[in-house]
Simulated scan of single mutants.
Amino acid sequence: MDLTVLAREAFGGGRRLAGVERLRGGSKKGVHRLLFEDGGTAVAYVWSAAENHWPGADEPADDADPLAHASGLGLFEAAHRRLTALGVRTPRVHLLDGSRTGHPADIAVVEDVTGSGGENLEALLERDPRAAEPVLARLADTLRVLGEDRAPGWGKLALLDNGGVSRGSSPAQLVLERALADLAEAAGRDDRIAAARGRLADGLHARAAAVAPRDGGYGLVHGELGPDHVLVDAAGEPVLIDIEGLMHFDVEWEHVFLRIRFGDQYPNLGGTEGLDRHRLDLYGLAIRLSLVAGPLCLLDGDFPHRAAMRAIAEYNLTAALALVE
């Protein structure tokens, strides 16, 4: 895809594009660094079926399902607008274009945080955990801001902001249904999950039965907030990326994922005080099964980083089985 016209639309004729680098990551969209002759950079997000490695990428998006794959310019724009209003840092936007008149995809051109003196939080934690401590403290503040932005219903922002209603009787019921589907997917691809399918299904149903109705609304959650989805800018501020899945939901869903991805660093993000333990139990098993089924499904296609996907599936398969021993 020729991004020369796109660069001109974003920055005018005064900046000439010198090259393009494909950045690693992005299973649902292409992520490209734009390199300019003046030494500056930007990042282009490209949403198209050719850049989406998930099965069913050509099918229409189901925004009424909060747990459906979150991909697209509309979801990105709604999420970016809300995060900006809340004062939550995310890459600044240079251009949004869903017209498809000059290029065959939806496009966003945004600030290149890592190309401007920043880095990935995952890399910072590996390189210098002590230097990451103030970033984690700021990220904990961000999580509090998101959790306190509440709505009476649950679902993706683009849907709710337009007056839509998500399907399902509750987030917990939706999670149960999705987890059972993930279990079926995983069981069809791995004999160990297939052998434990009854035990895993019983574990899901028992955990779901213990969840009581929730009063007080639903906070904002990113949905996949691991350290690889947080950049650190030159000022040491956390910058959220891959924001298309931003939605109002049970905040326990976010915290289970945080606990898995941040490991020993998770207590620095606020811990589980005040959270519902029954939801944590249900979502803990459900997310493990999702992190088995999802990578195994990706491996059915042409996703390029195959060893990493296999490792994710294997790690979470072992963890899921341990939860129902």
Rank of each mutant, 00 (worst) to 15 (best):
W54V: 08
R150G: 12
G117N: 09
W47K: 01
V93Y: 05
V88N: 08
L136F: 10
S48F: 01
A137N: 07
V165R: 15
P60I: 07
R150F: 12
V165Q: 14
T101H: 12
P60E: 05
V135S: 12
G56I: 05
H103K: 03
G98K: 00
V135L: 11
E77T: 15
D161R: 13
V135E: 12
G147R: 09
L136E: 09
T90H: 12
H53W: 10
G115E: 12
T114L: 11
R89G: 06
P129S: 08
L83P: 06
H80Q: 14
A50C: 04
E111P: 06
A49D: 13
G72W: 02
A123L: 11
D58S: 15
A123I: 07
G147T: 06
V145E: 07
G147F: 06
R81M: 13
L86V: 14
E119D: 12
A42M: 04
L83N: 07
G115K: 04
G39R: 00
R130Y: 00
G117I: 12
A131F: 12
A42V: 00
G98Q: 00
H53D: 04
A123C: 04
K156S: 08
W154V: 01
A123D: 14
G98F: 01
V43G: 02
A68M: 00
P91K: 00
A137G: 13
S48L: 00
R92N: 09
D128Q: 11
E51M: 02
A151P: 01
A44Q: 01
N52E: 10
D62Q: 11
L125R: 03
N52G: 12
G98E: 00
R144G: 14
L139D: 06
D63C: 06
R89W: 05
L73P: 08
G155E: 02
L125K: 01
A50D: 15
E51F: 02
E122M: 04
D63T: 10
L159I: 09
G72F: 02
E148T: 10
T90M: 03
L159R: 01
E59D: 15
P60V: 06
R89E: 09
